[in-house]
Simulated scan of single mutants.
Amino acid sequence: MYVLADGTERKLYLREVIIYLVISLLLNSMGNGLTVACNMGSAMWTASAANLAHDFHFSIATILIVYGIVSILVNVILLQHFDWHRIIGNLIFIFPYGYFVSLWANFFRSLGVTSLPIPTRILLDVIGIICLGIAISIYQRVNVILHPNDDMTNIIRFKYVKGNPVAAQLLNFAFPSVVIVVLWVVFKEVVAVNIGTIIALFFQGAVIGWTDKHLFKRLKHRLKFIKDKKETLAVE
């Protein structure tokens, strides 16, 4: 929804939806690709996927797609009903997304990011995580198509934790955190987990909340697909 100067709301025009989605999808895949290339710690889901890809010799694109499908099933459980519009939107998102992340990662590697000094890579890694948080905020508010992992955050946020983005993001990160720990115990090695992962774990939700209030401030959450007949949710 878009809030006008007089406080009234209107639906987004198609061209606005396209612009917001293009901006957010580019920021999301670029931010994730940058963190993978820097190897100073990716966001939790990407870090978890990178470890699975490393330990079982799959491409990270394949793991990200599988994660997306698993997340769709979890979202159905969280919503307690099938929402085919939501599921189709998730599927539209995840198949190109994994490959875009891989392409961006390869692009940044080709620029020599992996050989930069550690302080520079840490800075670029943090920038990548911030880009990711900004992107998530934008397309969660548009709520037309979302990555199912971020859709999960949206569902948890507005259905279970009263709109709190930090709590929702921490709950969303529980599964990839467990995967990383299990792989570390079994294989005695961890990749893509570093200072950036810690920053993402504790501050990505805060970046999403800050972006909701300060970037594209008139763009408000569209909760059409988050249904709960027993509650009326207030969006800050």
Rank of each mutant, 00 (worst) to 15 (best):
Tyr67Ile: 14
Phe58Trp: 15
Leu91Ala: 14
Phe108Tyr: 11
Cys131Ile: 08
Phe107Gln: 08
Ile92Ser: 10
Asp83Glu: 15
Ile94Trp: 07
Ile63Leu: 11
Ser110Val: 06
Ser115Asp: 15
Asp55His: 15
Ala47Gln: 00
Pro119Phe: 08
Val70Tyr: 06
Asp125Glu: 13
Ile122Gly: 00
His54Arg: 09
Val126Asp: 00
Ala47Ile: 01
Ile129Gln: 03
Thr120Gln: 11
Trp104Arg: 01
Ile94Cys: 03
Leu78Arg: 02
Phe100Asn: 09
Leu111Gln: 12
Ser71Gly: 12
Ser110Ala: 13
Cys131Glu: 11
Tyr139Arg: 02
Tyr67Phe: 14
Thr114Gln: 12
Tyr99Gln: 13
Ala105Trp: 01
Arg121Val: 03
Asp55Met: 13
Ile92Asn: 03
His57Asp: 14
Ile60Gln: 11
Val76Cys: 11
Asp125Leu: 03
Ala53Arg: 02
Val113Phe: 10
Ile92His: 01
Val76Lys: 07
His81Cys: 09
Ile122Ala: 05
Ser48Asp: 05
Leu64Met: 14
Val76Thr: 13
Leu52Arg: 00
Ile69Trp: 08
Gln80Ser: 14
Ile60Phe: 06
Leu79Trp: 04
Ile127Glu: 07
Asp55Pro: 03
Ile138Leu: 09
Val70Asp: 03
Val66His: 08
Ser71Tyr: 09
Ser110Phe: 10
Trp104Glu: 06
Asp125His: 04
Ile127Ser: 06
Cys131Asp: 12
Ala105Ser: 14
Ala47Glu: 02
Leu52Lys: 02
Tyr67Ser: 12
Tyr139Pro: 01
Thr62Leu: 15
Asn75Val: 08
His57Gln: 12
Leu132Arg: 05
Val74Ala: 09
